[in-house]
Design a protein around this nucleic acid. Sequence first.
DNA 1: CTTTTGCTTGACACTGTGTCAATTGACATT
DNA 2: AATGTCAATTGACACAGTGTCAAGCAAAAG
Lengths: 197, 197
Amino acid sequence: MSRENLNTRSRILKAALDLLEASQGKGVRMTDIAKRAGITRQALYLHFSTRGELLIEVTYYLDEIKGSEERLLPSRTAQTGIERLDAYIDAWGTYIPEIYGVAKALLAMRDTDEAAAQAWDDRMQDMREGCQAAISALNRDKMLSSDHSPDQATDILWTMLSVRNWEQLTIGCNWSQEKYIATLKSLARCIFVVDAT
Amino acid sequence: MSRENLNTRSRILKAALDLLEASQGKGVRMTDIAKRAGITRQALYLHFSTRGELLIEVTYYLDEIKGSEERLLPSRTAQTGIERLDAYIDAWGTYIPEIYGVAKALLAMRDTDEAAAQAWDDRMQDMREGCQAAISALNRDKMLSSDHSPDQATDILWTMLSVRNWEQLTIGCNWSQEKYIATLKSLARCIFVVDAT
DNA sequence: CTTTTGCTTGACACTGTGTCAATTGACATT
DNA sequence: AATGTCAATTGACACAGTGTCAAGCAAAAG
């Protein structure tokens, strides 16, 4: 419980994070994490009860490191709905590649580990709130296309911005990160913003 | 090699398919498949060398059963680009829920099994060709929005129509199949079709 | 100088995949 | 009726990875 304990815990989290980032989430075993943290595999279980729990804790550690909170500030301070939508796509779209390794590992556990599934869904629910806020701002400005209700628009934006879609476009279709961001902004405008011709 | 052999093989494929469909691809073990096919687990390996290979063969079996070829005919015989785009979204969008169980299982293996990854990617490449054909038809009719090159439009349509997106919208957001199809058609029109006001 | 704490060591259970050798039972050949 | 072939069975085992447990050790804390 003392300082030493916390240090080891952090070392484990850092080790796990490093490995997950390096390998894009694939094939990171408890043994690997322990080795990198400089302890035995068994000792991992003195700090985290399962691999799933460790992975979940890594996501919180990651948020801490990368400052996920502050990133969304510009989107919250944006004036118009359109600015807010753009800012949100910028913020989230830039965040994805930084969390991709951990996200991939968690997504892979989603099907087998109930707790991991819950943890991932929680995070995605948070992300969804960002989408909803952007859509609401657009709606408030009377700039939301009449083709979609706010709820439906949120569903669509949320899906557009999924990690899987980022993966498919950047890794699968070889889009640059810049192209990804620019195109998603353009798509969002085309889909959600009422045409002011 | 005789009739009996083929029958067992088919029985295995059917057993696997039934289980994958019933469980949406989750937690189907070799033992389960064998039991349902009425043979021993070890006997599975007399017909398929690995679980991955079995899964891949199930996809071909599935195509056979569901007639994936014929489904795309209406899209190929469509006159205008817009009709073709609509027909393709209809055909593919209707196909997804039927293959979802198998797709999910194959997707889950993608990260660990090289052959499974290749098999899945091949199928998605085929699907991509359908997207490309639709976009080309649109382009031929001078109806493709100038916002996107044909290649980029293909990337976007391909991503929009991914199994993961279908999953997120129908299962995750509780959209009905009809809403899914209708909304994707509407989105595709909004994104790809030049505005003829 | 004893207790507590954090970790190590080595062993083991469990699940699921994949392999192997020996055997059985049915069917076909001659 | 004897022989061979072939699919499948039986039972055993290897391997990877997760998770557990008991005993011990070394350094810090009291």
